[in-house]
């Protein structure tokens, strides 16, 4: 049991972060507003979770301008993809083991 929990990634314990990663792994890149729309969270909440994931180097941010408006886009890094897959596998194994 201990072993299984070791594979659990602390960075993904939060639902919003789990949501962010789920969205990013199936899309090339997603901008801030689109993430906000799908996850239905506040600006501040989303920003802080994105920053945390950035710090772990799981997501990469890039800023660009559409006309004059700044547009912040996010995409998942390869490290993030690997970590997320490991997390899902751990979830799966845990559920299989306990049923």
């Amino acid at each position: 049991m201990k072993n299984l929990l070791n594979n659990f990634n602390k960075a993904f314990e939060n639902r919003v972060r789990l949501g962010i990663m789920s969205i990013l792994v199936v899309n090339d890149f997603v901008d801030f507003n689109r993430l906000k729309e799908i996850l239905d969270v506040t600006d501040g909440n989303l920003a802080s979770h994105l920053k945390a994931l950035e710090k772990e180097k799981y997501v990469v941010m890039s800023k660009e301008f559409i006309g004059r408006k700044p547009n912040t886009k996010y995409k998942v890094s390869s490290a993030g993809k690997k970590a997320f897959e490991a997390h899902i596998n751990a979830l799966e194994n845990l559920l299989k083991g306990s049923s």
Binding site: G19, V26, N27
Partner: peptide, 10 residues
């Protein structure tokens, strides 16, 4: 949650 987010976003 993971499944729904993946689906809803893509």
């Amino acid at each position: 949650q993971i499944r729904s987010m993946m689906e809803r976003s893509s």
